[in-house]
Design a protein around this nucleic acid. Structure first.
Ligand SMILES: [Mn+2]
Ligand SMILES: [Mn+2]
Ligand SMILES: [Zn+2]
Ligand SMILES: [Zn+2]
Lengths: 161, 161
DNA sequence: TTGAAATTGAATTTCAATTTCATTTTAAGG
DNA sequence: CCTTAAAATGAAATTGAAATTCAATTTCAA
């Protein structure tokens, strides 16, 4: 999905920009949606629904879990959020600000998630696909290991994948 | 986990080899486990539990679904099976015969799953990890697109994500 | 052969994801 | 500013795969 607005993490998307974007899909802008979007875009990382809901509830306890759930699905459809499922099986969401394709390095010790982008990797993927007659549309790539602090500890608190 | 036996797809693992392998973990070899292992190793592809259970039930309807479920988890722990969760969210298992690390190309049209191995990709992953101070233990990498027959069809039967 | 420990399998539980539905809200038109 | 049809909300219910329970059965070391 091609975004019409040049929104970025940290730059709150204007409520009326959202209204325009969402109305193109025949959907309606609501207080709840705008509030959830605002909170979501103004936070970083890879959060699960419970975490996002907790943030929302802190600001407005009237908003239901179901609405947060549905709104995150909606934002994913609109290209404003991205859903991730790493090897631990938890469903997480991250902001999908324009031009932010990246893959992930995940620490098996502390759960830290690092993002990276590597053009060589991307082109190699396409070469591999072409070799097998495939036309790639997207990929998933995660590297699991230990970050440098964790690699030196003995006692590891296991988390994620 | 380092395998003691040189089993391969198609070469049925001897029941007594399995007995030795499993007993090293303090576990017991049972009729059910041997039967499930045999059926599992003598089939190919990426099957979900229902599919594996169906095969097992065809041979021995007395074996319960729960036992198949538990045995596949066990085989995974022993390094004889590998669990996969592609983007469609289904849990699948494939035989993890010795020395068969590979990644996957998945057709969004027909659901075909192709396996590939690329040394360049593996080493590039390690370079990327090192660049970020990580020590990688495993990775997940899937390429999603259209196989050549599907790329030329108009009507696509969507499967897998 | 014996018996402690492990396994089996039907039934139950868990738990996140999804759906239902009565009520409320939105927004386009008048 | 009304009206109203369509969409959204949110509490509650449902779903379904994964995991657990437990009484009965089986395994295997001694
Ligand atoms: Mn990310
Ligand atoms: Mn495979
Ligand atoms: Zn770490
Ligand atoms: Zn195909």
């Amino acid at each position: 999905m091609k975004l019409k607005f040049n929104f970025k993490k940290g730059n709150a998307m204007e409520s009326n920009q959202f209204k325009t974007l969402i109305s193109e899909e025949g959907l309606k802008s609501t207080r709840q949606r705008v509030e959830i979007l605002d909170i979501f875009l103004n936070s970083t990382g890879h959060q699960n629904l419970a975490e996002i809901y907790a943030r929302v509830a802190k600001t407005n306890p009237k908003i239901g879990y179901t609405t947060v759930y549905r709104t995150l699905k909606l934002l994913t459809r609109l290209g404003l959020a991205a859903q991730r499922k790493f090897a631990d099986g938890e469903t997480r969401y991250e902001s999908a600000a324009e031009g932010t394709h990246h893959d992930h390095l995940i620490c098996l010790g502390c759960g830290k998630i690092l993002e990276f982008e590597d053009d060589g990797l991307e082109s190699l993927q396409h070469r591999i696909a072409r070799r097998h007659g495939f036309k790639i549309f997207h990929h998933r790539m995660e590297l699991y290991g230990y970050c440098s602090p964790c690699a030196h500890k003995k006692t590891r608190i296991r988390r994620k994948g």
